[in-house]
Design a protein around this nucleic acid. Structure first.
Length: 536
DNA sequence: CTGGAAAGCGCC
DNA sequence: AAAGGGCGCTTTCCAG
């Protein structure tokens, strides 16, 4: 089986799917006739594309993924086709199983899917999301399918070596911890640890936050407690090492496909409410990067022999998006001038010149810059910066005084969200925020923070999705064998044959920078290397 | 035994 | 943790 798909294809899996080309669709649907679409009735069109590709089959015609359309329209709460059909067509259906329904069942499924599309397409038009759907999300499906199928190579030997070292260190740490605690207990159990710290050792509970079940033992608390007793620091070391070992050594090794020697994540195209993608099985969007051990994990991600990794990051993408959306003159000017944004903000907040901004002032500005986008309050800011509450409040006021456009953007975004029930990105993606109407203050304010953040995070997500489609198209147009292998929100990782690294580098940089014309330039940092750590 | 909640923590 | 947004995964613990 090879070439284009010319018949109904039944895929395996519990959520049985089938795909068909226009001819088949026309035959199966004499009434609905020849919409040149490839439709899905199953759980995941992209996964079917991956499976078909393994058989050498590629699809023809424009795609229309009903599940993605439903997600954009906010009608598919659950990620199941049955729910979409219930919500849109008001029909109750059972999960499709080819063994039970056979070819006749497929025809019914095709007909139902076509009706689904006929209902969803006009709604996309009405909501102004046709371009988003047709030009960004649908082309991205195939790109993601190829990324998933290709996977990323992992140096299992190196990972195994790390695992052995860390397992040994963990054993030593465990002994020291039991010594300090005066007995054995389950270090991974917060309740048991709480008992040791606060009851047996009677460490001060002053300022220690309470969770739902009692005093917290998280990293902030233990860091504070470390000043009074040697045990908390050991616990923190143990936790960090155990995390690396369980999640990033053992689980990652487990996830390596023995046939390919690579990990093949699954990208959830509508994974987040903001428009971001998510990654799972395994999640390759939260691979460690900080710290020596973290970079060591990342160094185990390596390119094929004869290839190099190209890592391309959008520089300060979310702050640039905020500058774009808010039209704030100061922010826009700083980016247009190519200034270091945190230094520029520091100069503005502290009322000094950029040349006299100290490292400490820049650090403060950086926390504020990010905090603003998330709606951070003075209490959190004060704690984060170890400064008095009043000073934190002053900084925030000073920020909004200097960047009035940002304040207006925040206020108008919330106001519009309250009126219309949703907020949206620069490319028309929407997120419903009904909680803005809540009479419960905490709920309402949480919704306000989410409403502020969504247009920023979501527009950034739109941009990287556009960039992925553009980069992929450019690579094929130029006949290059380089491929995008990972996306981590503001970063693309490419695997490039050594002889086309220059061309691929130029392609990824240019296409990412040209993804859209904003009020401010898009800047891309590019690195290369023989591992993900090295390229980064 | 499985499923879910809770705590905790990795990334952007 | 807190007036910081968005995810997924691990372990522990408990209920069915």
């Amino acid at each position: 089986m090879s070439g284009t798909c010319e018949g109904i294809v039944v895929s395996s899996g519990s959520d049985v799917a089938y795909l068909c080309d226009p001819t088949v669709l026309a035959n199966a649907l004499p009434a609905a006739t020849a919409s040149p679409s490839v439709l899905k009735v199953g759980h995941n069109l992209k996964s079917d594309i991956v499976r078909l590709a393994r058989c050498g089959v590629s699809l023809v015609g424009p795609l229309f993924d009903c599940m993605i359309a439903g997600a954009l329209l906010g009608v598919a709460a659950a990620h199941r086709l049955e729910d979409l059909v219930r919500d849109v067509l008001a029909e109750e259906i059972a999960p499709f199983r080819f063994e039970e329904s056979g070819v006749d069942g497929l025809a019914v499924g095709v007909e139902r899917l076509e009706r689904l599309r006929l209902r969803l397409q006009p709604r996309l038009d009405e909501e102004g999301m046709t371009a988003l759907f047709r030009d960004i999300e649908m082309p991205l499906v195939e790109v993601l399918a190829r990324m998933e199928r290709r996977g990323v190579r992992v140096d299992t030997a190196a990972l195994g070596q790390m695992g052995a070292e860390w397992r040994s260190q963990l054993t030593d740490l465990t002994g020291e911890i039991f010594e300090l605690a005066g007995g054995e207990f389950n270090i991974g159990s917060p309740p048991q640890l709480r008992q040791i710290l606060f009851e047996r050792l009677k460490l001060s509970t002053k300022g220690v936050r309470r969770g739902k079940t009692g005093l917290s033992t998280d990293v902030d608390v233990l860091t504070r407690l470390a000043e009074d007793h040697p045990l908390p620091a050991k616990i923190l070391s143990h936790r960090a090492l155990a995390k690396l070992l369980s999640t990033y050594v053992d689980a990652l090794l487990q996830a390596v496909n023995p046939e390919t020697g690579r990990v093949h994540t699954i990208f959830n195209q509508t994974g987040a409410a903001t428009g971001r993608m998510s990654s799972n099985d395994p999640n390759l969007q939260n691979i460690p990067v900080r710290g020596e051990e973290g970079r060591r994990i990342r160094s185990a991600f390596i390119p094929n022999p004869g290839c190099v990794f190209i890592a391309a990051d959008y520089s300060q993408i979310e702050l640039r998006v905020m500058a774009h959306l808010s039209h704030d003159p100061g922010l826009v000017a700083a980016f247009r001038a190519g200034q270091d944004i945190h230094t520029a903000t520091a100069a503005d907040i502290f009322g000094t010149l950029a040349g006299t901004v100290t490292a400490d002032m820049r650090r403060v500005a950086k926390v504020i810059n990010f905090g603003i986008m998330y709606g951070m309050g003075p209490q959190r800011l004060a704690s984060e910066l170890s400064i008095p509450h009043a000073a934190a409040q002053k900084y925030i006021e000073q920020y909004f005084e200097r960047y009035r456009g940002v304040r207006e953007f925040i206020e108008s975004t919330i106001a519009r969200g309250r009126e219309t029930g949703y907020v949206s990105t620069a490319f028309g993606r929407r997120r419903a925020v009904p909680e803005l109407q809540s009479r419960h203050r905490a709920t309402q304010q949480a919704a306000e923070r989410a409403a502020i953040n969504m247009p920023i995070q979501g527009t950034a997500a739109d941009l990287i999705k556009i960039a992925m489609v553009r980069v992929d198209r450019r690579l094929r147009q130029e006949g290059l064998a380089s491929e995008i292998v990972l996306q981590v929100h503001d970063e693309l990782l490419l695997e490039a044959p050594a002889d086309e690294v220059e061309a691929a580098t130029a392609a990824v940089r240019e296409e990412m920078e040209k993804a859209a014309e904003l009020q401010v330039p898009l800047v891309v940092d590019v690195g290369r290397g023989q591992s993900w750590a090295e390229a980064h």
